[in-house]
């Protein structure tokens, strides 16, 4: 499903003393199968934008198209089928759990969407494996699990409706390095194996660089930059002006180019490979 924003404005509480324009004339396109990342600091309009993708909010003016769905200022009755196709993992999704057992919580979505429950139940073991949980958690209360496990249950509850688009709002917030790595590789495999469109909101520029193929930068409700992450991060100064940084490895490469004239480029190498590149460039420079 392709996602297109055309001149979207959004204003909270319009025509009141508290009115606040959160999105200003946003136009963008996310192709099917993209891994798009949204960056911008708190209050830049990221969350507001995300909520347009499954019709939690509707534009004050302009149009959002998600596949065949069209969201405008008018009310759309097909919203439920849209929500089934666009899964959203909110920040700290473990806070949305409420059922007595993990199984019932995961099946909450399918039930609401009126899906075939037998079929959904059959899928449970596969989904659990995908998110990295043992099947014996199904009959346990979600509240007995660790924070990291609870988050996986919440993600499973979104995946089970088989969405085409998966939106994740800071899915690694509060996790330790191991937990972070696991969630990021889970998202990677959903993107590659299931060809899901991924939309990630994150503060970790490193993750944007390593995983996404499209980056959108928001600042004060406006879309200020977009493109491939490597290109976007080339404009270090512009990003700094709006209070954002670039990934550390790119910072290092820039500094080494400027200070030492080392001809190093970023081509998705791992940190230790980058170290190797630097070492080789140094040796080459020394031999010259």
């Amino acid at each position: 499903m392709e996602i297109v924003f055309e001149n979207v404005d959004f204003t909270y509480q319009p025509n009141s003393p508290f009115s606040h324009q959160a999105l200003k004339n946003i136009s963008l396109r996310i192709k099917h199968g993209d891994y798009a990342a949204f960056i911008g600091h708190t209050g830049s309009g990221k969350s507001t934008l995300l909520q347009h993708l499954n019709g939690i909010l509707r534009p004050t003016s302009g149009t959002v198209r998600i596949g065949d769905f069209e969201l405008t200022t008018k009310k759309n009755n097909a919203i439920k089928s849209l929500r089934r196709k666009v899964g959203v993992v909110f920040q700290y999704p473990e806070h949305q759990l409420f059922e007595e057992t993990v199984e019932r919580d995961i099946l909450f979505g399918p039930k609401n969407f009126g899906m075939d429950m037998e079929e959904a139940k059959h899928k449970l073991p596969v989904i659990l494996e995908e998110v990295g949980l043992p099947t014996d958690v199904l009959q346990r209360s979600p509240f007995e699990l660790s924070g990291g496990q609870m988050r996986r249950v919440a993600i499973a509850g979104v995946l089970i409706t088989d969405p085409n688009v998966l939106i994740l709002d800071e899915p690694t917030a509060g996790l330790d390095p191991r937990g972070r790595k696991q969630i990021m590789s889970l998202i990677d495999s959903l993107h590659k194996k299931k060809r899901m469109t991924i939309i990630l909101v994150t503060h970790h520029m490193e993750d944007v660089l390593r995983h996404a193929n499209q980056a959108f930068v928001l600042s004060e409700g406006e879309l200020v930059m977009q493109g491939e992450p490597v290109e976007v991060f080339q404009e270090e100064e512009r990003l700094q002006d709006i209070g954002l940084g670039i990934p550390e490895e790119l910072q290092l490469i820039n500094q080494l180019q400027q200070a030492l004239g080392l001809p190093i480029t970023y081509h998705h190498q791992s940190p230790s490979e980058l170290g190797k590149d630097i070492a080789q460039a140094l040796h080459a420079g020394g031999n010259r």
Binding site: E206, L252, S270, P271, S272, K276, I278, A279, H283
Partner: peptide
Amino acid sequence: LISSIYSGMNKHGV
């Protein structure tokens, strides 16, 4: 990250 990068350099003689 910086330590990781340095360890890569270290292995290659820096």
